[in-house]
């Protein structure tokens, strides 16, 4: 059963910003990445810290030992506890192959008119980025050999659909 939540107007959440909302008893972070909206459960799968309150950052890669490349600027959320990094657009852990995945939620921008009782039609653009932890089973099993605290059957953090409905950001939980 999906419930519709109005988050705020598009103007109230400019690119690069995030807002934490309560929806369906959950704390959820809604992010504006250059006009695209994404929502993540505000709980890190590690120790359940407020993941979405961490730094919005980028991703460092390396083609050669001693050299650094800066990628994905503004698309990574770093948990304020222990600094695990997650891809805001998918909820996936950056340090795969551990295959920790945080749950993301769809967010849309809709018109204020929906407040007047219109159906939450949206535009049908529900991102296909929700997660199924079972698809990562094989890698998750491997993590057991590393003695990590997080095992494959830990609950992932959900992603939720977000729509823009006539300048209002709408979250479906």
């Amino acid at each position: 059963m999906t419930t519709r939540y109005e988050v705020c107007t598009v103007k109230e959440l400019p690119p690069g910003e995030r807002i934490i909302v309560e929806a369906d008893g959950l704390s959820i972070g809604v992010f504006n990445l250059d006009g695209e909206f994404y929502a993540l459960n505000n709980a890190c799968p590690h120790q359940l810290a407020n993941l979405c309150e961490g730094r919005i950052t980028g991703y460092v890669t390396s083609d050669e030992v001693g050299e650094y490349e800066w990628e994905r600027d503004g698309q990574i959320i770093q948990c304020p506890w222990h600094h695990w990094e997650f891809d805001i657009t998918t909820g996936e852990s950056v340090f795969n192959p551990h295959k920790v995945r945080t749950r993301t939620y769809d967010v849309s921008v809709e018109s204020r008119s929906v407040e007047e009782g219109a159906d939450a039609a949206g535009d049908g653009k529900v991102p296909e980025n929700t997660t199924d932890p079972t698809e990562e089973t094989s890698e998750a099993d491997q993590t057991e050999t590393y003695g990590t605290t997080l095992q494959g059957d830990e609950p992932p953090i959900e992603t939720y659909p977000v729509e823009v409905e006539k300048d209002v950001i709408v979250l479906y939980v």
Binding site: V60, T61, S62, E69, V94, F95, T148
Partner: peptide
């Protein structure tokens, strides 16, 4: 530490 500080040792 690698999980949280990986960006300093991306290799």
């Amino acid at each position: 530490d690698w999980k949280g500080l990986r960006q300093q040792v991306p290799w």
